[in-house]
């Protein structure tokens, strides 16, 4: 499996292939995500409705698309999106549940729709018009390699020509994204 480019978002900074591209010390993740949105010159109002996990994955993949010309050479169903994380959607799950458990219970539809980890893949598919394969794995933090193994499987079986694969995890303000564009080595 050949890695074309890697985007990492962690510690209030964005890295491309290990090199820091942008940093912005912010009091919390949401403020940093907004700064990153502006740095990437995005105009996508729906971004602000997303939960934090979706914002994180969305930004990582947008940065990846901006920095890899190759990604645009694939047909709309040739790119798979394979993500893994530890916390699933637990961050938003908590927020939704706090409303339901309140003295006067409120069930928020806008929160509930984000109580699934793979929603971020839906947001990315809509943004880039990618109709390809999706897979979301929830793993122990020491088992991140399982994501790449599963991405490799999709390339090996020919279900995808390229794969946006990586780790996208958000819980209680702590975040880490590392996604790569990978493909089969040239033959």
């Amino acid at each position: 499996m050949q890695t074309i480019a890697t985007i990492r978002i962690a510690n209030s900074a964005l890295y491309l292939n290990g090199q820091q591209m942008f940093a912005h010390e912010a009091e919390n993740a949401e403020v940093f995500f907004k700064a990153l949105y502006q740095y990437l010159k995005l105009e996508y109002p729906k971004f602000f409705k997303m939960d934090s996990l979706s914002k994180l994955g969305f930004l990582a993949v947008d940065a990846l698309v901006q920095h890899t010309a190759e990604i645009k050479s694939y047909a709309d169903d040739e790119i798979a999106v394979v993500f893994g994380n530890y916390a699933s959607s637990l961050d938003t799950d908590q927020k939704y549940w706090n409303g339901v458990a309140a003295a006067e219970p409120v069930a928020s539809p806008a929160l509930f729709v984000y109580t699934l980890p793979n929603i971020v893949q839906g947001e990315i598919a809509i943004r880039h018009k990618w109709y390809g394969e999706n897979m979301f794995l929830v793993l122990d933090r020491n088992n991140k390699t399982a994501v790449n193994n599963s991405a490799a499987l999709l390339l090996e079986t020919g279900k995808a020509k390229a794969c946006v694969a990586g780790w996208v995890d958000y819980l209680n303000g702590a975040y880490e994204a590392e996604v790569a564009l990978v493909r089969k080595p040239e033959e």
Binding site: D76, V113, I119, Q121, G122, I126, W130, Y131, N134, K159
Partner: peptide, 11 residues
Amino acid sequence: GSTSNDANHIS
């Protein structure tokens, strides 16, 4: 089998 995204709406 295969999976495919609608690329249309999250819900």
